[in-house]
Design a protein around this nucleic acid. Structure first.
Lengths: 224, 224
DNA sequence: CGTGTGCTTGAGTGAGGTCAATACCTGTGG
DNA sequence: CCACAGGTATTGACCTCACTCAAGCACACG
């Protein structure tokens, strides 16, 4: 998140994550499995993730779920209710997480140094993110999808100045599979293949990228 | 060209169809295959589609393209540049089409009775649309994707008070395939199967939906 | 008329899904 | 400290659906 106003906001709220809910500043603490909001909820603002990780997903009538994205520190969640104020998604904590609620009013009052232009930019970023996901899902190869997933995750860590080549994934293999539109077994197998090829090493959620360049090539669909 | 609305439009704008953009009225006339904008173009506003049809797509480095959506009369195109003003997509006319350019300034000046809230709502709508697409692409079944495509197209015609059960598709089978992440042959075969099942009748681009309810069931993933 | 572009249909194949068995890791209670 | 349970991850065997390659058809246009 390159916006300095948001960076400042993250900095200000760092370290308050032991309080369950601090009404005056709008901080909420969630545990793994807790919902931040459900489908059909009316959202009066957006949530800034201070720590932890959330997944945003939709459930179809036939019961299967599609994960729209994973959100970690510095990300803003809740833009999907921009249309009519009602969320069509559910947001669930993957882990112990802390989020700050920011009402539309407060966001646009100028007190935070943000205006509707920034909000529009954020919406544009989110739009591009969804569009990227759709682009990827339309490519069939499981290898490519998974390489893309790892690279995207790594890149987003890089934006936060965290290590890009070694990290712990906050989500289960099932979540990855739902995100990428694959079977969970395929995710396991593909990861195992990457390990055999010397591209990564892994131990459960702990991942080390041994050849980011090569993974990036795979993600972009270039042969070799 | 049998569509009377388009014929009228062509008559009205006769003689200016070699001009890429008529600045004073902001109307652009496009022919099938013309680009409205390309990847990397800076967009100073959005485009309202008056008539015809456009496809919005992205091309990857490896050359394959993913179609993000089809836009017809009443749709707004160009929100994908909301982030930094630069489009990551290409917009191409599928057919003889007319679009009106609306600059950000003019859009937000209030002259058109719109403000940034409306724009945010539009962005939200677009976000949901992309999200729907991603949701669908993550479902593997070709049958379901195609049923969803037909229903979505029909619903959008309904929003414009047009016939929902009989229409001409403006795009080729290849475009449908790229949109849905399928092979073009699969699109043909699946359509043929729908015809065998008595759900539709078709003749090239001309489609008649014989059982919308049944198609909707298929699209939503409910069995039978 | 031929030629091009888009559409349809067939045959064969392989990537990825499904089902099933096993291993691993963490927490709980005896 | 060990036994057990439940959630998570891995691996194997099998099979299906959709992709690829290929050929033929239909319509539009010069």
């Amino acid at each position: 998140m390159s916006n300095p106003a948001i960076q400042e906001l993250v900095a200000k709220t760092a370290g308050i994550n032991t309080v369950a809910r601090v009404a005056d500043i709008g901080i909420t603490l969630l545990h793994g499995g807790d919902f931040l909001f459900r489908m059909g909820d009316t959202l009066e603002g957006i949530f800034l993730v201070n720590a932890g990780a959330l997944k945003l997903f939709r459930t179809t009538e036939s019961g299967d779920q599609q994960i729209n994205g994973f959100y970690t520190q510095g990300d803003l969640v809740g833009l999907d209710a921009l249309d009519d104020g009602v969320s069509r998604c559910e947001a669930m904590a993957l882990d112990t997480s802390s989020v700050t609620f920011i009402s539309w009013g407060s966001l646009l009052s100028g007190k935070r140094g943000l205006d509707y232009r920034d909000l529009l930019k954020l919406a544009g970023k989110e739009l591009n993110r969804e569009s990227d996901l759709a682009l990827m899902l339309a490519q069939r190869s499981a290898e490519r999808r998974l390489a893309w997933f790892l690279i995207e995750y790594s890149d987003r860590l890089g934006e936060r100045k965290l290590a890009v080549d070694e990290f712990s994934l906050p989500m289960t293999r099932t979540d990855i599979a739902l995100y990428l539109g694959l079977a969970l077994e395929t995710v396991c197998r593909e990861l195992a293949r990457f390990e055999d090829m010397g591209l990564i090493s892994k131990n459960r959620r702990r991942i080390r990228l041994l050849s980011i360049d090569c993974l990036r090539e795979l993600a972009e669909g270039n042969e070799q």
